[in-house]
Design a protein around this nucleic acid. Sequence first.
DNA 1: GAGTGGTCTAGACCACCTG
DNA 2: AGGTGGTCTAGACCACTCA
Lengths: 251, 251
Amino acid sequence: MRRSGSGPSTDAPRGETVGYRPLYRQVYDTLLRRLADAVWQPGQLLPSEGQLAAELGVSQGTVRKALDALTADSLLVRRQGRGTFVAEHDDQQSVFRFFKLRPDADGGGIPDSRVLALSRGTANGDERERLDLPRTAQVVRIERLRSVAGRLCVCETISLPESLFPGIAELSLPNTLYSLYATRFGITIGTARERLKAILLPAREAALLEMPEGTPALEIDRVAMDLEERPVEWRLSLCLTQDMHYLSVLR
Amino acid sequence: MRRSGSGPSTDAPRGETVGYRPLYRQVYDTLLRRLADAVWQPGQLLPSEGQLAAELGVSQGTVRKALDALTADSLLVRRQGRGTFVAEHDDQQSVFRFFKLRPDADGGGIPDSRVLALSRGTANGDERERLDLPRTAQVVRIERLRSVAGRLCVCETISLPESLFPGIAELSLPNTLYSLYATRFGITIGTARERLKAILLPAREAALLEMPEGTPALEIDRVAMDLEERPVEWRLSLCLTQDMHYLSVLR
DNA sequence: GAGTGGTCTAGACCACCTG
DNA sequence: AGGTGGTCTAGACCACTCA
């Protein structure tokens, strides 16, 4: 691992005011690249800290700091006595990382999904804006209904750039899309930005959710980003909140 | 700083399967106690790492790890070359730590507040449940309207246990309540749990917000906790989301 | 230049898991 | 018993801030 600042100039001294990048950050980037390129698959055991340190030519403490940062970003999972693993975000527990709707009563279980429609077309204005796409870009749209504990509660439309997810329209879609993105297309969702509004259900969505038109609902406008913070999915969800709520924990 | 596991038994060996607590965690708890007891005031400069290490009888690295953890919990702010400071959560920027409502258009500025009513009474069922209070507990209730960029957008009722905030009903209330809690009552808000629902505005709140009855609105049920995770404030807010949205970032 | 936090290293020991 | 991550230490050097 070279101990240099970033940028094209070689052997720039570390003392440069601009462009200084700590060693552990460079290690972080190196490992992140391997994760983003799916060199290491979800669930896989990474080499030990000592092995990574030897391979990269840095001390174990520096590798540890990079691994800790990746763990804090929930890209890795560390288990004392066993090793460091690539995080799996399709676990029963991890479904809830991006699904914040909870039954008012405790419990509830895993959300269920049913695809209503699947189509392809040219990106519209909203899709181009959310996904940062050129005017001629093609997108795949998925419309589906979701239930929790047998109760219909979400109607959503998902838009994906076809360039990033070639042939996804021909696959049978699982309940948890994000694990499909990771395993079939090498795209790991790192963060998501959600904008929430209270709206009244339009006639069409009301019928799908088997509720009267004009029922209040929570609209969630979500853009999901990959590990390099590029937008890769846009999702517009209408959620019933009569027996459910959206949980947000602020720190 | 004693190097022992927690619990009443003295000199328990560190190898105990249960009750083992790392040294840096003990340092964390010690410093957290000083912050909770307001030994160090917001904005104040802490002793340097070396001084704390000498005082507590541990290495600088251990103190650093505790300080880093407190910084991650946003209780401290570290500035290279200057020192470590107690976080101030009443900054222009930090108002938005717990205020997630944003204008759809960029900008907006600081939210403004106007108190409508102030009353005292015995805690009702909701208040006892949210704030974990006994049946005879007294609470202070604050009802207020908030605006962003001159637009009326929030109507909320805040309930506080009078035992924790004695005499707060006699004070003139600032726009940012949480800084008042910290400076006047030594209570620092560490986390908050919000439950969101879409509802229709009742007549009374609709009138206050100058909107028609039945307008869809976002209901935010917030319980704010102090540094020891005890609930200290309950707040029920009704928010207009015609020109605003609630921003949630998931990682 | 002095003092602070930030990085990096090397080594020791501990707690945990598996065989 | 051996390997892994987790903790703790001590010391060196770097980057930043301010007088």
